[in-house]
Computed example of a mutant assay.
Amino acid sequence: MSAMIRVEVVYALPQRQELVEVRVAEGATVRQAVEASGLLEKYPDIELDRRNKLGIYAKLVKADTELRDRDRVEIYRPLIADPKAVRKKRADEGKVMKKGGGSADEEA
């Protein structure tokens, strides 16, 4: 019988965080730990092959990555807005405010 390792599987929601500790066989993959956690059944919106990315301690990994004892597997939710686009929009709005002190559409 192979040795067992202990890992945590985490899924953060906007209002709360689900943390499940699981024991899996040594050599288990990230996908196997997520499946053993029961989070896929509890949250059917998790789609490992399409929407959700996976990580170990904030570093992106593939689902077939082999786990080590005491790893923390994280299931990431998809972004709702592109951070670059949001920053650009905020910067553009700031430039308009600096030039005229009001919106660009208003004229005195």
Rank of each mutant, 00 (worst) to 15 (best):
R51E: 10
R70M: 10
Y76M: 04
P78M: 02
L79H: 07
D49I: 08
L67W: 04
K53N: 10
L60K: 01
A81H: 13
A81E: 15
D45Q: 13
R70Y: 08
K62P: 00
D71S: 08
K59A: 02
R68Y: 03
T65F: 01
T65Q: 12
I80T: 13
D71P: 02
T65M: 01
D49C: 09
R68K: 15
V73L: 05
P44V: 02
D69G: 12
P44F: 05
K59Q: 14
R77H: 02
I75C: 06
L60P: 02
K59D: 10
R51G: 00
N52C: 07
I56A: 01
R51Y: 09
V61E: 03
I75P: 02
I80S: 10
I75L: 07
P78D: 06
R77F: 05
Y57K: 09
I46F: 06
R70Q: 14
D49W: 08
D64H: 12
I46T: 06
D49N: 14
R72N: 11
E66M: 13
D49S: 13
P78A: 07
Y57L: 10
I80W: 08
G55H: 02
L48F: 07
R70I: 00
R50S: 15
K59W: 07
I56P: 01
R70A: 10
L79M: 14
P78C: 05
D69V: 12
A58Q: 15
D71R: 06
I56C: 03
L79T: 10
R72C: 09
D82T: 09
V73T: 05
A58P: 00
G55A: 14
L48Y: 08
I56M: 06
N52W: 05
E74H: 04
Y57I: 09
L60C: 02
I80Y: 08
R72D: 08
R77K: 13
D82H: 12
D49P: 02
P44T: 05
L54G: 00
P44K: 08
D64T: 09
L79F: 10
I56V: 15
L48D: 05
P44Y: 03
R50E: 14
L60T: 03
E74D: 11
Y76H: 10
G55Q: 05
D71N: 15
D82I: 07
P78H: 05
